[in-house]
Design a protein around this nucleic acid. Structure first.
Lengths: 342, 342
DNA sequence: ATGAAAGCGCTAACAA
DNA sequence: TTGTTAGCGCTTTCAT
């Protein structure tokens, strides 16, 4: 079982064996068109035979470029982020880039030190889903030198890919409006979260567009956007109904977990969904389709978000000298109609 | 908005500014104890002032070691793998390692090319959740030079971290046996999947241990381990019951999706869970706790699996010359009792 | 305790 | 078309 690793063969060994210079070996790899077909074939066969694996570390040092990019997400376990990561990984594969995954765990300090690590690795750039949009922080990140593309957050100064949450909120509200009327309620997360604000704005915009007063929209704000919180709000709704107020004909939730909680809370108490109350979620996670009553929800192009971010980063890197204008691509969400709100 | 990137300062610039040699700067960074306190302070202040970011690429080239490891998973979107990734990312942070994420998408060809990429990057090693355990393939991977630690699959020749699926199957079966009796059925995935085989073996072992005949265990095998497939099996169970055979008192599923499907299929037809039929899942994904009837299931230490794998890889790398014996650490799953099978 | 200098493996002028 | 050669930025003997 003694298995001393064979001494790594380098460009020089290949060159010697093939009877050419190192430059020619390098060229057959990087610019095959400028080397004679015969030589190329000979070199390639030697490479094969010696099991030569080029050392990109050395190449990076020499060229000053690196085929490595960073991806910083708050929690890779969250389906929203892991879908993004999947899109990033696929695009990176296409571009022959490696992705350094950093899980910031919602900790700004950790996030910063990870960006620092990426800078030390001389990553060509980084895609980050920032924990806080604090402009000062972002400037600091950028000053670390690597190119930055923000995901799921618009950058005033720089590239980003994001989703139009206002449009998503509008879409959901319009659906409820046209199928159920105007007496739906909004179940929202903390107003400290930009996405929650935007979705709410969209819902209000839909109301305005229908000639209604947006301030009449009843909103329940929860601190944790969990299934449990949803069940809690459902109870509130039922209590109010017992006190005489009618149940709303629709509930618009700003994520899927809340919506599932609402449905559970309502159905447990004999209220039927969607007959008595229609429920719309937001996000289209796997749980939406798999729920006991499949969820009508706003689908977010998460994979596309990640995929596009890589392409944007590559464009930014390429355009480094050739002049590059920062850009933002905003994806439009769409409504997926299922049983919970037909 | 013209912002020419400032020319990167290197070790040499720092040395010049601090009036010392590059060796001293390097030493204050890597072996601070051997440089005089006064010099060290001066150098550090210059580093700070010039915003010097060491270039690990160059260091790697020089030392032949790299603070980068690879992580290859079949699908980062799958909660099982993303939990592992989280554990890997955390452990890597602790060890100041970068993690290159590769999503093999269940494609052996892609997996191989990703391992090749890791070899080109001279990653210090790779953690892989292999698509196929084919020994020849693994040998080929190892021959690419980087150290390998397998995750969720035992390596006959090399390091690995895995979960004892036989124990998990036994745990689940024992629970059903002691709370419900011996007339439970097994709903399993394809026998081509080692984990499915192991979980089945565990269930059979539990039967044997109770003095029962393992061959009497009724098993339903599905090709896709989805919620839908679970609903399908539930229907089969109900049809059989109509034909006179009694419903089993328990159902043991080899993943959580199947269990949720079973519950849905049964309850939709008026069968109460757990009163008439107890259902046990496997995996303890988020959906288990969040299900309408919270799921009794076998919890797998996914995070620990990833975390331990990093430590094992580090040990293997360290022990490269100092003699290192390959090891396998096998984690024991545990049973989480919830409402679906109290 | 510090400095001088030789590379790590590769790429890219430039020369032939 | 191919070869020669000078580094990329760092670490590490070996002197001093």
């Amino acid at each position: 079982m003694e298995r001393n690793p064979p001494p790594r063969v380098g460009l020089a060994a290949v060159a010697r064996e093939a009877g050419v210079s190192t430059a020619t070996v390098s060229n057959t790899l990087n610019r095959p068109e400028i080397v004679a077909a015969a030589t190329r074939a000979r070199v390639l066969s030697v490479i094969e035979r010696l099991d030569f694996v080029p050392n990109t570390t050395a190449a990076s040092l020499r060229t000053g470029t690196n085929r490595l990019i960073g991806l910083v997400v708050p929690d890779i376990t969250n389906p929203f982020y892991s879908e993004i990561a999947k899109g990033v990984a696929a695009a990176a594969d296409e571009q022959r880039l490696g992705v350094i995954l950093c899980n910031s765990q919602d900790d700004p300090v950790r996030e910063l030190s990870q960006l620092e690590m990426l800078a030390e690795q001389r990553a060509a750039g980084a895609l980050v889903v920032p924990i806080t949009a604090d402009a000062k922080r972002l400037a600091r990140l950028r000053s670390l030198g690597t190119h930055l593309v923000l995901i799921d957050r618009e950058a005033d100064d720089g590239c980003s890919t994001s989703i139009d949450d206002v449009a998503g909120g509008r879409l959901a509200a319009q659906h409820l409006l046209s199928t159920r009327g105007d007496d739906f309620v909004l179940v929202n997360g903390s107003h400290a979260i930009p996405q929650c604000i935007d979705r709410r704005s969209g819902a209000r915009a839909a109301l305005s567009a229908a000639g209604l007063e947006p301030d009449d929209l009843v909103e329940y704000e929860v601190t944790e956007m969990t299934t449990e919180a949803g069940v809690g709000v459902a109870r509130l709704l039922l209590t109010a109904a017992e006190a005489g107020a009618p149940l709303p004909s629709g509930v618009l939730c700003t994520n899927d977990q809340l919506a599932i909680g609402i449905i559970r809370g309502l159905t447990q108490h004999g209220v039927s969904v969607p007959e008595q109350v229609a429920v719309v979620g937001y996000g289209d996670l796997a749980i939406a389709a798999d729920a006991p009553i499949p969820l009508t929800t706003v689908e977010q192009p998460k994979y596309a978000l990640g995929h596009a971010a890589v392409e944007m980063l590559v464009a930014e890197i390429r355009g480094e000298q050739s002049g590059h204008r920062h850009s933002t691509s905003v994806f439009r969400p769409s409504l997926v109609v299922r049983d919970s709100a037909p």
